[in-house]
Design a protein around this nucleic acid. Sequence first.
RNA 1: UCCCCAGUAGCUCAGUUGGCAGAGCAGGUGACUGUUAAUCACCGGGUCGCAUGUUCGAGUCAUGCCUGGGGAGCCA
Length: 434
Amino acid sequence: MYPSVYVDQIAAHEGKEVTLHGWLHGRRSSGKLHFLQVRDGTGTIQCVVFKGNVSPEVFHEADHLPQETSLSVTGTVKKDTRSPLGFELDVRSLAVFARPAREFPIGHKEHGVAFLMEQRHNWLRSPRQQVILRVRHSVVKAIRDFFDGRGFTLVDAPVFTPAACEGTSTLFEVPYFDLGKAYLTQSGQLYMEAGAMALGKVYCFGPTFRAEKSKTRRHLTEFWMVEPEVAYMDLDGDMELMEQFVSHVVQTVLQKHETELRTVLERDVEKLRKVVPPFPRITYTEAVEVIQKAGHPMKWGDDIGGDEETVVASAYDRPVMVHRYPAEMKAFYFKKDPGDPKVALGCDVLAPEGYGEIIGGGQREDDLAVLEAAIAQHGLPREAFEWYLDVRRYGSVPHAGFGMGVERCVAWICGLHHVRETIPFPRMMERITP
RNA sequence: UCCCCAGUAGCUCAGUUGGCAGAGCAGGUGACUGUUAAUCACCGGGUCGCAUGUUCGAGUCAUGCCUGGGGAGCCA
């Protein structure tokens, strides 16, 4: 309907006349020349309108179009070393689809966080947000490619669940017909364990919900999580999978977006280049010693808090894997270490540079009797977990898996201060619009 | 749930001891043939978050509320 070319393909049309459809990002003028920055979603190109090349009406209009006017520009593609893109469009004609009904709220100057969050739908048009969303897309694709390339099957977990998966987190409640209350999922893991008994290697990838009243830069109430689960895998195998997975995602994104990360987001990409196996591994007990030596009061059995986490993570130049946490701190389904029953066979991956926990996982309890006892000990409703116990009743095997939060991963790769910029429309405690 | 901070023009902010409501940017009009957040001249733009109180007088002081931001706990 509208034959045109895209900015990212412009080099192939050097010297030819083409038409571009896009939005006016910015405009500058210098007497008989007007410079229009036109954004089309694939890139931004400077379109030069010379007074001698167009009608007086078009020339005048070109200097009076507001930001975000949707338009078509037709002209000749010219190589130009002064352009960051390397090419410019020498404009012959220009057609406006629609002028903004009112002034676009987001200018090219400074804005505050609150204002930008209210304008999130408009904010997405800014160059920085475009880069972040492209990186997010690549992270998602790298995740899927990693598992698909290793024989995993995607098994979608339900969003409505009858009860807490872990019994601890605060959940969002929704009415569910005559069955009473349902809850929005906080993890697909238990379902993946059933899936792994059917298909061996599985993963789920979808939105997850936490109703905790967390107000920090690392929290959203709705976030995306990928959760692989593998039959016949122990903690060591799980940790190998974690490090291969994380480095695959980081290196794939780096390969694809290095320039954007460096120029638009000012990310130190050398730090990302170092994210290759093997990752350092320390036990929880060793981590406590490191934290104590750094002067933080902490004893064995305490949770590793935010500051303490940074102490451990900043001792290394790549993600660090902390394993074998006190069993009491972990969810009921973790298998205990046969060599030391005080600790669970769990492992968290802490991202460098203070980005915190991006992965949590471990080996699951595969013994029916032990798991039944754990459910009772945690005071969980046995009936709700009958189906889950079936996973152990019929040919139980050692199995392990983990979950990675996509937004924390994207925030780390992009070097962002807050996870709210890593998801198109963030949902937080105090914000549900736009 | 708890602790800390902020709310003044469309946006970012300044506002002295309590004494006429300000700047930059954005917007409008015009000048300029190479601008990169262009520059220059001129113009319009206000429920100082809301309420109550103190005072001759409150953007400024006090109390309460609302909204947002940061952090703690919890987690990915």
